[in-house]
């Protein structure tokens, strides 16, 4: 464990805490894409299949349970909670997210880490996570005003993978000296997708103005 990866995990955890805070305190999920949240449930489940078969550390197991549990809870809130589900921006959250699944799965079959079920699903989850934010970014472009908690959520979510990239560079030079194409390229694509959001988020933060994404 290095400081960059710990910072990455904590940033990821914080993004989920911010999202749950928004949903629970405002009893609203306006501006949040249910499709992105559903993709994250798939990402975590397909990535953590070894949850019960391989024990890495208490921290690793605990975080996996937290990520799976919270992502399922968020989808539950947005789909089933009697108050919150009314606030879901259904007619703006229109990205056909199911179209992202077949290409990621085919790519995982073509370029798996190893040709075993768990490694193919693990590669699938890495590829899917890279594009899972797309429905959310599209929804932000359509939202007239993005509330602070939603903006912070997306910012932290993007920042966590950027910190992971630093962690990979650090590990390459200090530990493994191995090139890990799958997570590295996916992580770079994932972080690049946030590029314009980061630009407008930091600009709005500097100028103390409301965050707005150009349509």
């Amino acid at each position: 464990m290095n400081i960059f990866r710990l910072a990455g995990d904590m940033t990821h955890l914080l993004s989920i805490v911010v999202l749950l805070l928004k949903i629970r305190t405002t009893k609203s999920c306006a501006g949040i894409s249910l499709k992105t949240q559903e993709l994250y449930v798939i990402v975590f489940i397909t990535r953590y299949l070894d949850l019960f078969t391989r024990y890495v550390s208490f921290y690793n197991t605990a975080m996996k349970l937290v990520f799976i549990g919270t992502s399922v809870a968020i989808v539950w809130y947005m789909r089933l909670h009697k108050v919150v589900k009314q606030t879901y921006s259904r007619d703006e959250d229109t990205f056909k997210h199911y179209l992202l699944i077949p290409p990621c799965f085919i790519l995982a079959l073509l370029i798996p880490l190893e040709f075993t079920v768990t490694e193919i699903l693990w590669s699938f989850s890495i590829y899917l996570e890279a594009v899972a934010i797309l429905p959310q970014l599209l929804l932000l472009q359509r939202s007239s005003n993005i509330d602070n908690l939603t903006g912070s959520y997306v910012f932290l979510l993007g920042a966590y993978r950027a910190l992971y990239i630093v962690n990979w560079v650090y590990r390459f030079f200090t530990e493994t000296h191995k090139i890990r194409w799958i997570p590295w390229i996916s992580g770079l694509v994932q972080t690049a997708l946030y590029a314009d959001f980061f630009y407008y988020y930091i600009k709005s933060w500097k100028n103390h103005e409301k965050l707005r994404l150009p349509a």
Partner: peptide, 10 residues
Amino acid sequence: TVTTDLKDEL
């Protein structure tokens, strides 16, 4: 093998 060092990350 390669898979082991991948798997201690989340």
